[in-house]
């Protein structure tokens, strides 16, 4: 046992820099604060909502989180279409729970964005007017039950690759929210994989249905993370709002999921797809970036229909928002 009396005192002078204090105090000029803020973020420091932050940082985080929130909200619509058609009660319950989770994620993320200064109503206005975007994969139709499996498994898998990298975002509330979200998303992936694996043990028609769904979804999946970008020019990386480039995320997705797709006897619809031992990277046919740009600007096959559903839904539920804000009234 250590003799407590033999211990030397550990009394270093208080170092506020180590204990979360912000060096960019109000006495400094804007440029000095900016420099100190930047150094803090570059050194993996976290930012909290009540910290001073440069406008560029605030708007970049807001834009990023808002797009994410929009995607969670719009992302439930393709799946919602299959709740009533789910093949068993268990699948129906799981799908309903997934839809509830995704709307819950939208709630959490809109809260993060609201605290950065943009009211929720303004975010809805922008989304419904097409001024802000949501992810490309939610602009496509869900034709068969196999689509539900492919979405829950592979679209969520591609998303979680990106989301896990966000658990270390420099913006504290976003990073913490992503930890909760990733935990819930992992269940969705299991649900989706279970749907796909079950179909792949079924009839030839069912197996063909999965292959057909994969054929349609592969393009959007490969586009989902976006074109290759220059790491040095990406401001979201600079501010450590996100941690990885789009190509890093796509490579990670391929590394994990290509073997799992192939082991089921599915064929990936890209003859160029192969792992290049020399470069240590996957080679693949360049995704159709024109399609990506077309789709995310709300010119996808289902863009207008899904936005219109949200508009209708917002109008139809307006009375709820009014009701919860009304003064309590005695019931006669």
């Amino acid at each position: 046992m250590t003799d407590p009396l033999a211990l030397e005192p550990v009394l270093t002078p208080r170092d506020h820099a180590d204990s979360g204090a912000r060096p960019w105090n109000e006495d400094l000029s804007h440029d000095e604060r900016f420099t100190l803020f930047e150094a803090h973020v570059r050194a993996s420091g976290k930012i909290e909502p009540n910290d001073w932050m440069p406008d560029e940082y605030r708007t970049a985080v807001l834009r990023f989180v808002e797009m994410h929130a929009n995607s969670e909200l719009m992302g439930v619509l393709p799946e919602r279409e299959w709740i009533m058609r789910a093949p068993t009660l268990k699948r129906k319950l799981a799908l309903t729970a997934k839809v509830q989770d995704e709307v819950g994620h939208a709630q959490l993320l809109y809260r993060v964005a609201e605290d950065l200064g943009k009211p929720r109503e303004a975010m809805f206005d922008d989304l419904l007017a097409g001024r802000t975007k949501f992810h490309n994969v939610f602009h496509y139709p869900t034709r068969t039950w196999a689509d539900i499996g492919i979405i829950a498994w592979l679209v969520d898998a591609a998303a979680i690759v990106a989301q896990q990298a966000l658990r270390d975002s420099s913006y504290g509330p976003y990073a913490r929210t992503m930890q909760k979200i990733c935990w819930e998303e992992s269940v969705h992936i299991m649900h989706g994989r279970d749907v796909v694996v079950t179909l792949m043990t079924g009839s030839d028609t069912q197996r063909a249905m999965v292959q057909e769904a994969l054929d349609r979804w592969w393009g959007p999946l490969m586009q989902m993370h976006g074109p290759r970008s220059d790491r040095t020019k990406d401001r979201d990386l600079h501010w450590r709002i996100k941690a990885k480039t789009s190509e890093e995320l796509r490579q990670e997705f391929l590394t994990i999921y290509v073997p799992r797709i192939l082991e089921l006897g599915l064929v990936i619809p890209d003859r160029e797809l192969a792992f290049d031992d020399a470069t240590g990277e996957w080679r693949y046919t360049d995704p159709d970036w024109t399609e990506l740009r077309t789709v995310v600007t709300n010119h996808g096959p289902m863009s207008e229909e899904r936005l219109e559903f949200r508009r209708m839904n917002r109008a139809a539920t307006a009375w709820v928002r009014t009701a919860i804000l009304a003064e309590p009234r005695a019931v006669a």
Partner: peptide, 28 residues
């Protein structure tokens, strides 16, 4: 890959811990 999912599945230990890894109790 398997681990990624497992990570999430151990959620009570992972996702949840995250919700408070800052000492800040307020977000505003």
């Amino acid at each position: 890959g398997e681990r990624m999912i497992d990570e999430g599945e151990r959620g009570t230990d992972n996702g949840e811990r995250g919700t408070d890894n800052g000492d800040h109790t307020t977000d505003n």
